[in-house]
């Protein structure tokens, strides 16, 4: 490598600093959560319940609510996204395909807080009626909206994978008199498996990382959720809700533990994603 000019050094320095900041975030949270981690309470922190008055700062209910909410949202979103991706790639009339994708891209630009706001006034009353008791703010309410929120992300991945077949194969299939649905099922779908897996991982990441939907719709009680119809508080909501506490309290320190858990979960998903799909294949 030849020597760099001062301007090029500045580019390098900026890049390295930004990169280091990503790692420094984790370090900073570790330092601030240290009093909790240090006292050997790691297990009771991860596995215990949340009783700040009794000095118990476990985040297990939040961890369970987060995972439950994200997984149900992904379960709901996968068929929605897969069906829409099928339509956009092969099954919809050719003239409708590109407007369909435009619609999907527009969906991805709708702010999360807007979904939350609309759902508070449109979906929550319906849920209240349907369940027959309670406020209507449940994990299921949040999961329904979250599914719609993460669908565009997944669709973009799915469509990318389905379209990855070389044009010549596709034309060869057409020349053999293959109907679009047969081409989809026997040519496009089999080779799209890695992209579909990547899309699901990506959707799971977005669902786990989302704050506003859980915060606005899931009810936020810090107890272990019994079912999707009970209220729950996600890790992300927990951070947003405890923030008002005194900076030096143990309660406050526990949110950095939540941050660390979320950071590590995300990093693990990114690692899985990079392994599953080469950089060039990512949309």
């Amino acid at each position: 490598m030849s020597r760099l000019s001062p301007a090029e050094r500045a580019l390098q320095l900026t890049t390295v600093c930004c990169g280091l900041l990503v790692a420094a975030m984790l370090a900073l949270m570790l330092v601030l959560a240290w009093p909790l981690l240090h006292s050997g309470q790691l297990l009771s922190l991860i596995g215990g319940d949340w009783q700040p008055a009794a000095g118990r700062y476990g985040i297990a209910p939040m961890l369970v609510a987060s995972l439950l909410l994200a997984m149900v949202a992904v379960l709901l979103a996968v068929p929605l996204s897969l069906g829409t991706a099928f339509a956009a790639v092969a099954l919809a009339p050719p003239l409708l395909r590109s407007p369909l994708m435009l619609g999907v891209r527009l969906m991805s630009g709708i702010p999360t807080v807007i979904y939350g706001f609309a759902a508070v006034f449109a979906l929550v009353p319906l849920m209240r009626q349907w369940i027959g008791s309670g406020s209507g703010f449940t994990l299921l309410t949040a999961a329904l909206v979250l599914a719609v929120l993460i669908a565009p992300t997944m669709i973009v991945f799915f469509v990318g994978g389905l379209r990855a077949v070389p044009q010549s194969y596709s034309l060869a299939a057409d020349a053999l008199g293959c109907r679009p649905v047969d081409k989809l099922l026997y040519l496009l779908l089999p080779q799209a498996a890695p992209a579909i897996a990547a899309g699901i991982v990506m959707g799971l990441g977005r669902a786990l990382g989302d704050t506003m939907i859980g915060l606005m719709l899931a009810g936020n009680s810090a107890i272990m959720p019994e079912s999707m119809l009970s209220t729950g508080r996600t890790l992300t909501s927990h951070i947003a809700l405890v923030i008002a506490a005194d900076f030096s309290s143990m309660e406050f320190k526990s949110i950095f533990a939540c941050g660390i858990v979320l950071y590590l979960l995300t990093a693990a998903l990114v690692a899985i994603l990079r392994r599953a799909l080469p950089a060039t294949a990512r949309p």
């Binding site: 990441g205 786990l208 990382g209 992300t236 990093a267």
Partner: peptide, 10 residues
């Protein structure tokens, strides 16, 4: 990939 709340926390 980081949740925005984690960036806010930082």
């Amino acid at each position: 990939g980081l949740p925005s709340i984690v960036v806010g926390l930082a």
